[in-house]
């Protein structure tokens, strides 16, 4: 099954590259990933070091300049280096969160759509309930109870965000179930599990990937929001924690760049992901349209 999914994924990637408008998004996306991977080696300064000016004075609240393109904080730390370091945590939470959530959502959708009946009803009522819980208060309370850690953050994301994927995949499975190749497999004596994961699952992969892209954005925003509220694990650095430090410093009226650049990074990343999502959608639309119920 994994081989099939890998093939579908690779074909999707090739098709995506040929879609107009996708190149820019893919290049931007690649840059973010690159910075996340090699960030610590390309950052011009140690993000935690309190820097000094040439005359030995502390480099406090230095506005953006050639030496410090994003300026420095009121403690004399280099904002660009912080943003570069922060990329890693932001992206890791985004991708791991999206992956876990998609896996849950796809499986709930597959089982609900395929099994039908009571199983379906039960799973869909649980999905409805997941829609009723507002994410941010839930995540805040979860962190408040279980402590400030990445695992808790991922738990909060995984507990609620699978709901959309589950609904969409279920709808897709309902229509796939009626198609000849699935019926043929059933008539041919394939066991239900095999029909579900061998014949149906590969056909929802491309749709699941689209929702995976959206979920990366949601997970990134979730991480950034919680970090901005001061609920990130101590000593971690992400775009959100930089903004928390900036906001709580009460120095923003003299050091606006401290909050501006990490937020800009988030905005560019989200824009990039939604462009990518759009391109992916138009590259794959032919697959879904023919399969709509």
């Amino acid at each position: 099954m994994s081989a099939t999914i890998a093939t579908v994924g690779w074909q999707a990637a090739q098709r995506l590259w040929r879609t107009p408008g996708a190149k820019l998004a893919l290049i931007g996306f690649g840059l973010f990933v690159l910075v996340a991977l090699i960030g610590p080696w390309i950052a011009p300064y140690d993000p935690f070091a309190r820097l000094q000016l040439a005359n030995g004075e502390p480099a406090r609240s230095v506005p953006p300049s050639l030496e410090h393109p994003f300026g420095t904080t009121s403690y004399g730390r280099d904002v660009l280096s912080q943003v570069i370091w922060g990329t890693r945590r932001t992206l890791v939470v985004g991708f791991v969160g999206a992956l876990v959530t998609v896996v849950i959502g796809v499986n709930v959708g597959l089982v609900a759509g395929f099994a039908g009946g009571r199983t379906d009803a039960l799973l869909m009522r649980i999905t409805d309930s997941a829609y009723a819980l507002p994410f941010l208060p839930f995540a805040i309370v979860l962190v408040g109870i279980l402590g400030r850690s990445d695992v808790v953050l991922l738990l909060a994301i995984a507990t609620l965000f699978w709901r959309t994927t589950a609904r969409v995949v279920r709808a897709q499975v309902l229509s796939l179930k009626q198609r000849p190749f699935v019926r043929a497999a059933v008539v041919g004596g394939a066991r239900p599990r095999r029909v579900l994961y061998r014949h149906i699952a590969p056909n929802v992969v491309s749709l699941a990937m689209l929702y995976g892209l959206f979920l990366v954005t949601e997970a990134v925003i979730a991480e950034a929001s919680l970090s901005f509220l001061g609920l990130a694990p101590p000593d971690s650095i992400s775009w959100g924690t930089i903004m928390f430090d900036a906001f709580t410093s009460t120095e923003l009226n003299t050091t606006w760049w401290w909050a501006f650049f990490p937020g800009l990074a988030i905005m560019l990343f989200v824009l990039c992901m939604s462009l990518l999502g759009r391109a992916y959608e138009s590259a794959q639309a032919h697959r879904w349209e023919s399969r709509q119920p």
């Binding site: 901005f228 906001f247 909050a259 937020g263 988030i266 905005m267 989200v270 824009l271 939604s274």
Partner: peptide, 11 residues
């Protein structure tokens, strides 16, 4: 839609 609200409100 892409601009995080904590960024916009802080600025």
């Amino acid at each position: 839609k892409a601009s995080p609200i904590f960024w916009v409100s802080t600025l």
